[in-house]
Amino acid sequence: MSSEQIGCSLADAASSSAYTHFLKAASRSSPSLHVIYINTSLETKARTHELVPTITCTSSNVVATILQAFSQIPDLNVWYGPDSYMGANIADLFKRMTIMSDEEIAEIHSDHNRETISSLLPRLHYYQNGNCIVHDMFGHEVVKKIKEEYCDAFLTAHFEVPGEMFSLSMEAKTRGMGVVGSTQNILDFIKNHLKQALDRNVDDHLQFVLGTESGMITSIVAAIRKLFDSYESSKECASIEVEIVLPVSPDAVSKTSVDDSHNFCSSVITDLEQITIVPGVVSGEGCSIHGGCASCPYMKMNSLGSLLNVCQQLPDEDNILSVYRASRLNAKTSHGKLVAEVGCEPILHMRHFQATKRLPDKLVYQVIHGNGRESS
């Protein structure tokens, strides 16, 4: 809906010549699998899939995808991108797994143990020059603030945050005071600790440091309210408070903007302009209306004002809105295939994995024999 070009720092990184160079190195290391974050363009997915067999991932399934790939394909090299923070954090997680017990590792993936995790580390590669500009806000100053002011709080970190924040939450996790992973992992962690507090029914104050973008606050608040409502209806509750701390750059929040077009009286306008807004959506993750990225300046370009501008053109008698109309990708890849066809295949591979917990036979064949020949 924006008149300006809406982009994404991760998608831009994956479309760069440096990323192509990264994958050309991968194509020379057989067998290789490219695991690409879902927040990339269809053109990128098509281009990379023709270079190296590719499967998409989300922050929720990236660890399971990589561990299953190593388990399913002997001597595999995995190349992850374009999110450098997530890649570094996954590598850090696997290194920490080498000192876990086999039983603890089996809870993460049943086919792995300390020996297999140690053996896969040299064959895990990640892109070094891509990052989400929103998660980039969780840098050294934020970590310093958390250590000084929130040392007794529960710590959470998304796979996309910089390594210092991730390591801090990993250390807290070993004490039972933290979680690392996807937005769903973080939400489940908060809900489980609140359930435990409600079951104890003793006055308590739960403090969670939210190491991810601010848009997740909306879904956390909704889940907390639902839990409180369910317990209050069944028995008398103790006084339990939940505090969500978002120690990020001020860029993660914004002031409301009200102008005369809203026809509010001056006193109401003054009140509204004092409100601090933490942008958010209902639930989930990723760049969609269903969740995530609410602090991203690119996503903010899809504003209410832009929507109103489009609506004011209706009915579209002069075909003014044609510029906004979605169109099919009829472009061809370097191998002469439709971008839409090739680019969707890595997504379908991920859907197969989500349904079966195994890489599809077609993808395994592509990894072992190359994309030029397909299984019958």
Rank of each mutant, 00 (worst) to 15 (best):
Q72K: 12
P82T: 08
S60W: 03
W79Y: 09
V62Y: 00
Q72V: 07
M86T: 10
S84N: 14
L67I: 15
S60M: 08
P74V: 09
D92S: 14
Y85A: 13
I90Y: 02
V62P: 01
L67N: 11
S84V: 09
D75K: 12
Y80L: 14
L67K: 06
S71D: 14
A91Y: 13
Y85D: 10
I90S: 03
L76I: 07
I66E: 05
F70I: 10
S60F: 03
T58I: 06
A64R: 03
L76H: 00
A64L: 06
T65S: 11
I66K: 05
D92A: 14
A88D: 09
P82W: 07
Y85E: 06
D75C: 09
I73R: 07
D83A: 14
A69L: 12
S59A: 13
Q72S: 15
I90V: 12
T56K: 01
S71A: 15
G81P: 10
N61L: 03
Q72Y: 12
T56M: 03
S71R: 07
D75S: 13
Q68K: 15
V62E: 06
D92G: 12
N77Q: 09
V63I: 13
V63K: 02
A88P: 05
G87N: 11
L76T: 00
S60C: 11
I66N: 00
A64C: 04
T58S: 08
I90N: 01
D92T: 12
D75P: 04
Q68C: 12
S84F: 06
C57G: 06
T56L: 07
A69H: 13
W79D: 01
L76Q: 05
D83F: 08
N61D: 14
T56S: 02
A91I: 11
I73S: 09
C57T: 03
F70S: 12
A64G: 07
S71P: 03
W79C: 02
A88R: 04
S59H: 15
W79K: 03
D83R: 10
A64K: 08
G87R: 10
I73E: 05
S71E: 10
C57L: 00
T56A: 07
L67R: 11
P82S: 12
I66V: 14
A91C: 15
A91H: 14
L76A: 00
D83Y: 13
I73C: 09
N77G: 06
S71N: 11
Y85I: 04
V63W: 04
Q72W: 12
Q72M: 13
I90F: 07
T58K: 02
I90R: 02
A64M: 04
A88N: 14
C57S: 07
Q72T: 13
F70M: 12
W79L: 00
G81L: 00
P74E: 08
V62I: 05
N89K: 05
N61Q: 02
I90D: 03
L67M: 14
S59E: 15
V78Y: 01
V62C: 01
N77C: 00
A64F: 04
M86K: 04
D83W: 11
A88H: 10
V62A: 05
S84Y: 08
N61H: 04
L67T: 13
I66Q: 01
G81I: 04
